[in-house]
Design a protein around this nucleic acid. Sequence first.
DNA 1: GAGTTTGAAACT
DNA 2: CAGTTTCAAACTC
Length: 792
Amino acid sequence: MDTPERNQIGTPISKFEDSPVFNYINSLSPIKPVKSIHITQTFNPLNFSSLPSVFTSPHVNSHKESRLKRHNCSDPSKPEFSSENGNKVCTNEGIGVDATQLYDNSAELQDNFDSGVSDGEASVEPSGEHSKFAIELPRTLKYDCGSPVCDPAPCCGTEAGCMPASLVQCGQEVSAKGSSECEVHLSEMRRTDQTKEGLECDWESLISDGPDILIFNSPNDSEAFKGLIQKSVEPLTRFCSSLMSQLPQNEFNDVHKMQIVDPVDSGELETEDLLAKPGEASELEEIDQLQNNPADTVLYKGMSSNASEKLDNEVGMYMPHGSKAITILHRGMRRRCLDFEMVGARRKNLGDGSNSSSSMLSQSDENIACHDKQLVPFKPGGDSSQCILPGIGLHLNALATTSKDYKNVKHEDLSSGRQSYLPSSTASLHSPSNSQEPFLQSLATASSERETDHGENGAAPVEDASQAPAYQVSDDFNQNSPKKKRRRLEHAGESDACKRCNCKKSKCLKLYCECFAAGVYCIEPCSCQDCFNKPIHEDTVLATRKQIESRNPLAFAPKVIRNSDSVTEIGDESSKTPASARHKRGCNCKKSNCLKKYCECYQGGVGCSIGCRCEGCKNAFGRKDGSAPIGTEAELEEETEACENSAVDKVLQKPEIQNNEEQNPACALPMTPLRISRPMVPLPFSSNVKLSRASFITMGSSSGLYTSQKLGKPSILRSVPKFEKHFQTVPEDEMPEILRGNCTPSTGVKSSSPNSKRVSPPQSDFGASPSRRSGRKLILQSIPSFPSLTQH
DNA sequence: GAGTTTGAAACT
DNA sequence: CAGTTTCAAACTC
């Protein structure tokens, strides 16, 4: 494919169509067309516009679904287009026509990429717009990845933790399939949310069936990375991806270096610089750097030679960034869903793993496991959610809110992660990474070294990472009794990703089980009996989840929605409820006065709202009547109450939490990347309930994420600040989204969900309230980063 | 560690 | 939709 096609890439689509090559390609396997379509979509700015829709969640899903169907019907000629493809196309919406046109191009591009090494060049050649676009995406991704912690951390020995979502997914997908397919899968995964169960099946089948070797085929790691990125971003076209792959790599490399040298500032500066210089020049510079930095090239690109083994490592290296970016988009979904789904995928891959290098799989698994473990904590919260993140469920939220002791959380996450065998890396990824960030930061230096090593020596890093946490793990193991667990949770941050349940009759397949509710698998530390919430019973878990979600679409959604302070200020309810965040459904406390953890609001560190049906509410975070103290007041109250109650934990922990939240916008805003991701992610999971909320994350799911960012020290996260702004705004959005989707009658979620009653109040408030509007505006603004890319 | 309390989740 | 039961966490001793 070295032929003229490359040159053509940059040329207008029309030319492609006319070109014989185009026709030839069309005649070729249908598969390519699909991918191409996918890619094309990514290019089209409209696609980005579609992203927002994704944010909307439930009702959005419905839209997408309808669209998908339409597309599918429209493209009967292309049997190859599975529902998945259709979905993809649909997501692009307005793009439809363009997609078809680009379709061919994309195919060509793919061929070129496949051919090999030339990718980057080819991608570069394309017109400035595309290239810029591609570049921007990577940047955005970086931002998303955002939290410096996450990025660096992954690189660090802790990779397991960091790698998480992106790696997990990428690793799984990549390992199992090819980068190209990974893209498809990612899109599918997104879609799955949107699409219905049927689609899920397809997705799974694809994963399982997917060529194991695509990765190997990929000329270099960059492609795999690209794939990941693309997956995350769908909108990117292949050549764009190629550009991204190069640029991102460079950037990433630089970032890593910067981080290593000066973890704190370097990251941000770079990101800023990149942002400031979106132009081609920057790209060229980056490219030049890559070329000039043999080491980097070796790390990222060099893989091609030794490939399989190194790929994993490299992928891990890359993935964090790409994955993060992706995660940002998909975080919400991934947290939980990823945990479960991904696990399944991974299993399949493992099962099939025999073909590809076992070593790679094992490594990826380890990484994933680590991530999962981290995630487990959560939150899912993201990162997965993730633990995603801490995923996003209560855990995630709690994590976000309670990010009490980052260190503690980290320990738990890590320990739990290691101990537990969590397959779901994706969901947890987000959250986990975040949660771990602090910890990672502490390890930063070591990690940085590891990264470098890692890039060079794939396997070693992983082992190191595993080892590093080991000591922590031991601690956790020592504490198995419920009380100990409790203490752990309390100290570590209750919510943190590692939730440990003690279920005896529910088999951990009901929302009674915190682990299950958080979208994470139970792990060793759990004292549950007859536990089915394990990867082994993935099918059962998924089925149960679906069932529960069918009853209540929001069942796995984060229970606590946090609004930014600004929003609260603006918001109508917010005025009433000082708390920055609100419990999704509201509590129903009657005896605890909302002063104990029996109260979900209190547990989540949020004030009670109108939606609460509690009696005698004295929630320190904010009373139902709105008298609740805001900010300092709340803290004071808490402290006083804590003193009264002699709840030492409360005094120590909660105040911190509040402080964290308020002080750190990111923290305050559950929105951390995870949440943002959530919105971005197609809640559509509806079909795949799994993905839907998980936020992880939280962090849902990806709960861990929140904490990480919040907790994350500025130094590491510095690069993040900008993101935080976006996120902050986003968080607001998130609430609205959740609420919207659920609340708005149109969404239908409400109707379906038993909780709709409870939910509705807050929703209505948000919807009507100006605050909410502001939230949207913010969202739009915040989102721009993505759109900006599209604009080109 | 055992027992009690509590409120969400699940069921009818 | 309301009421009841089940469940597991939170809490107390």
